[in-house]
């Protein structure tokens, strides 16, 4: 079974994003970037499938600037077999990302796509579901467990009320949630080995996909600031304060 894992290069989750004074976006100059954390979980899951003999090959794909090669290398060091970078300096929206991924899935004849549930920059939570729709494949989103079950895939999902388990026909799209696994750190020898793995360089035009944005940014602003209140000395004072503002 061939597994495709799309990975996005995003701001590192430890960095506090700052809005640019001209309100055109968030300042990413000289900011630490990293693989979207959910995508690390996806790579880990694919690598575990390969270790169990379920997956035969893992292809890591990113759509983004030249530096996204570094992100792909992280995936290759974790155990991915080869990479594809669809290079563009434009902002690419989930719909266009899904269209590019669809073309790659068809070309590669992949059997399973494991994407993250959400990219932590734009917080869209769309790409996996869009890809599934474009391919007419079933989807198992927000996965906390994935198991091959004969010719089906059993996916346990983190839903608002608890956990739900569904069974998918294959091929399928899975999107990962936080509790699926704990991603490994790549070892030094594996990082070295990953340097020799192939990354194919492509462009959106190679797949015939128009990446023109459907959504234009009007402005990006700071959220309403919340002022720090006061520290109180003891429980009695806290209760009195909460009563005085009608919170209890």
């Amino acid at each position: 079974m061939k597994v495709l894992v799309p990975v996005k290069r995003v701001i590192d989750y430890n960095v506090r994003p700052r809005v640019k004074p001209d309100q055109t976006g968030v300042d990413l100059a000289n900011v630490k970037m990293a693989m979207n954390p959910f995508d690390e979980i996806s790579v880990e899951e694919a690598v575990r499938m390969k270790e169990k003999g379920i997956a035969t090959e893992i292809v890591i794909v990113s759509i983004g600037p030249a530096q996204a090669q570094e992100t792909i290398r992280v995936g290759l060091a974790m155990g991915g077999d080869r990479g594809i970078l669809v290079q563009t300096d434009e902002r690419v929206e989930p719909l266009a990302v899904a269209k590019i991924l669809k073309a790659i899935v068809e070309q590669e004849k992949a059997d399973l796509v494991i994407a993250g549930k959400q990219a932590i920059d734009d917080d869209n939570n769309q790409t996996g579901q869009m890809l599934a729709a474009l391919l007419d494949w079933p989807q198992g989103t927000f996965a906390s467990a994935v198991a091959k079950d004969g010719d089906k895939l059993k996916v346990t999902r983190e839903v608002d009320g608890g956990l739900q388990t569904i069974s998918l026909d294959m091929p399928a799209v899975v999107t990962t949630d936080l509790r699926l696994n704990e991603p490994r750190f790549a070892s030094l020898p594996n990082i070295m080995k990953a340097k020799k793995k192939e990354i194919a360089m492509k462009t959106p035009a190679d797949y015939g996909v128009d990446t023109a944005a459907r959504l234009s940014v009007v402005k990006v602003t700071e959220p309403k600031k919340r002022e720090a209140g006061e520290k109180v000395a003891d429980v009695d004072t806290l209760i009195a304060k909460l009563k005085s503002v009608g919170a209890i």
């Binding site: 929206e93 989930p94 719909l95 899904a98 917080d123 869209n124 939570n125 769309q126 790409t127 996996g128 579901q129 869009m130 890809l131 599934a132 729709a133 474009l134 989807q139 989103t141 927000f142 999902r157 983190e158 839903v159 608002d160 944005a213 459907r214 959504l215």
Partner: peptide, 23 residues
């Protein structure tokens, strides 16, 4: 923007060839 809404809406958007506005 519940888990149920987030699950299905992007499928609808993709089929209509539109970009979803999330959350």
């Amino acid at each position: 923007a519940t888990t149920a809404g987030k699950n299905v809406s992007p499928r609808i958007a993709a089929k209509l060839d539109v970009m979803q506005l999330s959350d």
